[in-house]
Amino acid sequence: MSDFLKGTYTVDKEIVDETAKATIAKDEFKKKALNSIGGSMVFVEREKYVWDGDEEGK
């Protein structure tokens, strides 16, 4: 039984944190990296990388 809900009685339904550990690690890294931005410390958001090269380069 998860501990997410606390109160005067026990809720029957189980609440599961299905967030993949990989996502947690990715989020944690991103958070720490963003907090360190400055000088040579930069961060590139991989999921927002949409440019796929010049037409001419294809």
């Binding site: 997410f4 809900l5 606390k6 109160g7 005067t8 809720v11 609440i15 599961v16 967030t19």
Partner: peptide
């Protein structure tokens, strides 16, 4: 005398999937 439950989203920081489950838990 009410029946009380607390979901402390700020403490847990588990995202909206857990919020959905909490809302549907009872």
């Amino acid at each position: 005398g009410h029946q009380v439950q607390v979901y402390d989203a700020n403490a847990w920081r588990k995202g909206f999937d857990v919020v959905r489950q909490v809302l549907a838990a009872d």
